[in-house]
Write a protein that binds this DNA or RNA. Structure first.
Lengths: 216, 216
DNA sequence: CGGCTACTTGAACAGAGTCAACTATGGTGG
DNA sequence: CCACCATAGTTGACTCTGTTCAAGTAGCCG
């Protein structure tokens, strides 16, 4: 993989990595930090599509279609590994194993989006928040970002709301219910899962193991 | 591509192509007909994730992860081209061009899901229906399924509702408004776009051209 | 000491859901 | 031939989840 690496890039929290409708010449892999993908409507309504954590690919769409249909913004300080977009084709011709890994990651992103769509389309507000918190916790845990049920979660309630298709006010009130039930605590950016079984029951999910994943 | 083809499969309307949580050994390409991908919650609430039309891939997730996290059901009579899942790897090693096309299609699916998620999360009921109708019309048109603004649309209002995260009743009433405004007509499974500009304005989208697509 | 961002909280409102009844159509089998 | 049933669509009345508006508090930074 080193052969395709063009360099590394550091980004500050809140900074854009890719803009909507832009034509970025780069494909990135997240080495450190969190980001989120989003789309906005002409009048400003924003929908967060998914989050990117270490090991995730950013900008594959622009590598394949020439243009990004979504934006990406950093949530924390980030370290990105930069690949020139036009070398992606070389990777497919010379390293089929890595090419397969790219497809694996794209397919995983699709699966995550499927789950988000089910959540936003068919779960209630309380279920949505429980699901998203579990989803983020689980993903963070799989890349070693948690310590004993605790996690530094670099997002605001506005991010939660924009991810779940809820208003900020209702998100706040519903999140409070989840805390009151003793499922979680979340103060000063630190999330703690206090009652995993209760959380999973509310979210209507089962705690399935996940297959090992490739890292590019 | 012929080299990987295992055979063809015909399916009747309403028949399942892949079940949720199943482990299908096949990857399909749609040659004729429509299907839809969906997920369901334990209590039966259903979310339709996307529709599959001629040229689309079905079952890539199971080829990559061993298990499908969603189901697929036929809407019309279908003709599918069947590939054995375990030959996908051969395709990556021997035909990088086709491998790239698979990634292209996976990335396109991701883009479509992004749009659906924005729709379900942030658009109003009227906007959602306008968007989905345009979305389906445009995709059908790109594979030559339309004739002069008209399209045979093989879905019910229940499908619309389950795609958009709405109830059947509200979908019915909102769809009626869209008809009353003269944007569309939809009787006896035949959809007609009567006022494209009006429809696009309600849906809050622009009519962008799309890049040429690969067909496997 | 402002001014900013994140978070809270209450009250009024509305978009969408639920319940229930009814129409239309097509297929099935006695 | 027709009673019966299932599916799809329609409509009205009522309810409720979630939105909007508005007014706060708390912490942080220059």
């Amino acid at each position: 993989m080193e052969e395709f690496k063009q360099g590394e890039l550091t980004i500050a929290p809140g900074a854009p990595i890719v803009l909507e409708e832009s034509n970025s010449p780069h494909l990135y892999t997240v080495l450190e930090g969190w980001a989120f993908r989003y789309k906005t409507l002409p009048d400003g309504r924003r929908q967060i599509l998914n989050y990117a954590m270490p090991g995730d690919l950013v900008g594959l769409q622009s590598s394949v279609f020439e243009v990004m249909s979504h934006g990406v913004e950093a949530l924390t300080d980030m370290l990105l590994c930069v690949f020139p977009r036009d070398k992606l084709w070389n990777l497919y011709t010379r390293h089929p194993g890595l090419a397969f890994d790219v497809t694996w990651l794209a397919s995983r992103e699709e699966r995550l989006l499927d789950e988000n769509l089910l959540t936003v389309g068919r779960r209630t507000a309380l279920e949505r928040i429980a699901f998203l918190i579990w989803h983020l916790y689980k993903r963070a845990r799989s890349v070693g970002l948690t310590k004993g049920g605790r996690l530094d979660l670099p997002i605001t309630q506005q991010h939660l709301a924009d991810t779940l298709g809820l208003s900020l006010v209702h998100t706040n009130k519903t999140l409070k219910k989840l805390k009151a039930r003793g499922c979680i605590s979340w103060e000063e950016r630190t999330l703690e899962i206090r009652d995993k079984a209760g959380l999973l029951e509310i979210a209507q999910v089962e705690d399935t193991d996940e297959a090992p994943r490739p890292f590019l």
